[in-house]
Lab assay of single mutants.
Amino acid sequence: NKFNKEMRNAYWEILLLPNLNEQQKRAFIRSLYDDPSQSANLLAEAKKLNDAQA
Rank of each mutant, 00 (worst) to 15 (best):
N1H: 04
N1D: 15
K2G: 14
K2Y: 04
N4T: 03
K5V: 03
K5G: 03
K5M: 02
K5P: 13
E6G: 01
E6L: 04
E6N: 03
E6R: 01
E6W: 01
M7P: 01
R8D: 09
R8Y: 08
N9T: 10
A10I: 09
A10S: 04
A10V: 09
W12D: 12
W12R: 15
W12F: 14
W12E: 15
W12H: 15
W12G: 09
E13P: 01
E13I: 15
I14T: 01
L15Q: 14
L17S: 10
L17V: 01
P18D: 07
N19D: 09
N19P: 00
N19G: 11
L20S: 00
L20D: 00
N21I: 15
E22A: 11
E22M: 06
E22K: 06
E22H: 06
Q23L: 12
Q23G: 11
Q24M: 06
Q24F: 04
K25G: 01
K25P: 00
K25T: 05
R26T: 10
R26G: 05
R26S: 04
A27V: 10
A27E: 04
F28P: 00
F28E: 00
I29T: 14
I29E: 02
R30P: 00
R30I: 08
R30Y: 11
S31H: 13
S31Y: 04
S31K: 11
S31L: 09
L32G: 01
L32Q: 02
Y33H: 04
D34E: 15
D34S: 14
D34Q: 10
D35F: 07
D35H: 03
D35G: 06
P36A: 08
P36R: 05
P36H: 06
P36I: 04
P36V: 04
P36D: 03
P36Y: 05
S37M: 09
S37W: 12
S37G: 03
Q38K: 15
Q38H: 12
S39G: 09
S39I: 02
A40V: 13
N41T: 13
L43Q: 08
L43M: 07
L43K: 09
A44V: 06
A44S: 12
A44L: 10
A44E: 12
A46N: 00
K47S: 06
K47I: 05
K48E: 13
K48P: 00
L49P: 00
L49Q: 02
L49R: 08
N50W: 01
N50E: 04
N50M: 02
N50Q: 05
D51N: 14
D51H: 14
D51Y: 12
D51T: 13
A52M: 12
A52H: 10
A52N: 09
A52W: 13
Q53K: 01
Q53M: 12
Q53H: 13
